[in-house]
Structures are given as structure tokens and as C-alpha cells.
């Protein structure tokens, strides 16, 4: 009984770290640019497909795929920001949502067109294959690797934003665009860079998932909703909140799957709505 509780917890944590990588990019972009990117799940999907192609079609090493795929996603994100999203910063945010929504449709068909509608997956890289026993049951080494990687990415982000010069500039621009521009920050370029970086994070999430999660054209829609839930629960624009929100949602999904399968789907949305109503600044935000 207790063993299963812990085991499901580990499953939940590995789910959580994928969510964290998607939600981190979404949250960073919202926090700095003020745009809630509906197409962020699509960037995650693109990362998965590109890395999958590198591994399965070009026969490259998994690690090369992990490096190349997300970089291409960052490029796609950069083009998106530079040529489209930049044009709607000044208008009603409903249109910002609708613009990014357009990209969901575009990416969904683009992916079907290039890779076909069937589910794909890639093998687990050799060094991380196999499983080790945890509480008497075999637990995949790859999932442990993901669980370890998530907090490292979080630490890296924290260091980048709090300790580096670039991070200070980003925080200044997030707090007050005009002021940042007045002290000589090239705000448009910074925004493009932040959007690319956020997209890259989403792409990394997608690329990391290919050995253990199926790659399919419908994954974008599922992931963006979960990422929204995470971002809302942690507080829109709050990275620390997104990290703990991911863990919460990951655990809710893992335990719900086993103990309350009927409510598994609904529970996340109920949580999301409750937070929006009672604590719109998120569980970890300050009002």
C-alpha cells in the first residue's frame, strides 16, 4: 500500500518535470512579454518531432537530437515573435490570445503534413536504459534522469534571472518597458530573445519526452491545457509557482489515475478554476 503510494509519487514527479519544462517557458514569456502563448504546447510538440526526426530518420545520437531539436524550436519561436506577435503588443489582449491560437492550428496541420498522423516514439538512449528497483518495483532509469534534470533547469533559470546581467535586464523590462527602453535596453530585441528562450525550454521538454511519451499531432492541445493549469495554479508569470504547480499537477494526475480514475480528468480543471476564483495571484504569488 505504502509502496504503491511512493511508487505512484515517483511516476507523478517524472510527469511533473515534463510539465515544468513546458510551463517554465510559458510562464517566462507571460511574465516578461505579457502574452499568454496558446501555441506554447505546439512548440513543445515541435521539439518532440524535430528531435524524433534527428534520432529516427537521420539516425543521429539521442543527445545530438536533444541539442538540435530545441534550437530549431527556438528559431521558430523567434520568427513567430519577430513577425507576428510583436505586432499585437499594443492591442487588446483578446487578440493576442487569438493570434497565438492561430499558430496552434498552423502547427497542428504542419506536423501532420510533414510527419503524418500516426503516433511515433524513439528508443531510450543506451546509458539511461533499464530500470532499478524502487520499493520493490522496477522504475525506469530514464524517468529518474528526468526527475533529476527538472530541478537543475529550475536552478539554472533562477541563477540566470537573479544573478546574471541578462536576468537583471529582463526583470527591468518586465517591470517597466518604457523605463527599460529609456535606460538604453533594446526592448524589442530582448523580447525576441526571451520568446526564443521560452520556446527553447518548451522544445527541450518535448525532446526529452520522445523515449517515454508518444509523439502525436494531438499532444499540443493536451499539453497546453495542462501547462495553463500549472501556470494558473502557481500564479501567472511566477516561475517558482510554476515549479511547485507542476509537481502538484503531476502528483494529482498520477494519484488520480490510480485512486480516483473517474475524477482524474475533471480534478485538474476544478483546481484551476478554484485558484482563479479564490487566489488569482496563484498559490505561490503575493497579491
Amino acid at each position: 500500500m505504502l509502496e504503491q503510494l511512493f511508487y505512484q509519487g515517483m511516476i507523478g514527479l517524472s510527469l511533473a518535470m515534463f510539465l515544468w519544462l513546458v510551463a517554465a517557458g510559458l510562464t517566462l514569456i507571460f511574465g516578461v512579454l505579457g502574452v499568454l502563448n496558446f501555441a506554447h504546447g505546439s512548440l513543445y510538440m515541435l521539439g518532440a518531432y524535430l528531435s524524433y526526426s534527428a534520432v529516427r530518420i537521420l539516425g543521429l545520437d539521442f543527445w545530438v537530437g536533444l541539442a538540435v531539436g530545441p534550437l530549431l524550436v527556438a528559431l521558430a519561436g523567434g520568427l513567430m515573435e519577430r513577425f507576428f506577435i510583436r505586432r499585437v503588443y499594443h492591442i487588446d489582449e483578446a487578440y493576442q490570445l487569438l493570434l497565438t491560437f492561430a499558430f496552434i492550428l498552423i502547427f497542428a496541420d504542419l506536423v501532420k503534413w510533414v510527419w503524418g498522423p500516426i503516433y511515433q516514439s524513439a528508443p531510450v538512449p543506451g546509458a539511461l536504459g533499464g530500470a532499478i528497483p524502487i520499493f520493490g518495483r522496477p522504475f525506469p532509469v530514464y524517468n529518474l534522469f528526468v526527475i533529476a534534470l527538472g530541478p537543475l533547469v529550475g536552478l539554472g533559470l533562477w541563477f540566470l534571472l537573479e544573478k546574471s546581467w541578462w536576468g537583471r535586464t529582463i526583470r527591468a523590462a518586465a517591470a517597466d518597458r518604457e523605463m527599460a527602453a529609456a535606460i538604453g535596453v533594446d526592448v524589442p530585441r530582448l523580447f525576441t530573445a526571451v520568446f526564443m528562450f521560452g520556446s527553447w525550454l518548451g522544445g527541450v521538454g518535448g525532446a526529452l519526452g520522445i523515449p517515454i511519451r508518444t509523439v502525436s499531432p494531438g499532444m499540443a492541445e493536451d499539453y497546453i491545457i495542462q501547462a495553463f493549469a500549472v501556470a494558473v495554479i502557481g500564479g501567472l508569470g511566477n516561475l517558482k509557482g510554476a515549479f511547485f504547480g507542476s509537481i502538484l499537477i503531476g502528483l494529482v494526475n498520477a494519484y488520480g489515475h490510480v485512486y480516483a480514475p473517474v475524477f482524474e480528468l475533471a480534478f485538474m480543471y476544478i483546481l484551476m478554476a478554484a485558484i482563479l476564483l479564490v487566489r488569482p495571484q496563484g498559490l505561490f504569488g503575493t497579491s
Binding site: R87, F103, L105, I106, L110
Partner: peptide, 19 residues
């Protein structure tokens, strides 16, 4: 068969130029 792609492009044009 990729009509979503077409609609995505139409939506882009509408939001950017013909609100």
C-alpha cells in the same frame, strides 16, 4: 486535407490586418 492550416493563416491575417 490540411484545412486547419488554411484557417490558421486566415486567422493570422484577420487579427493582424482586418479586425
Amino acid at each position: 486535407e490540411y484545412w486547419l492550416l488554411g484557417f490558421g493563416l486566415v486567422l493570422l491575417i484577420l487579427v493582424l490586418g482586418f479586425r
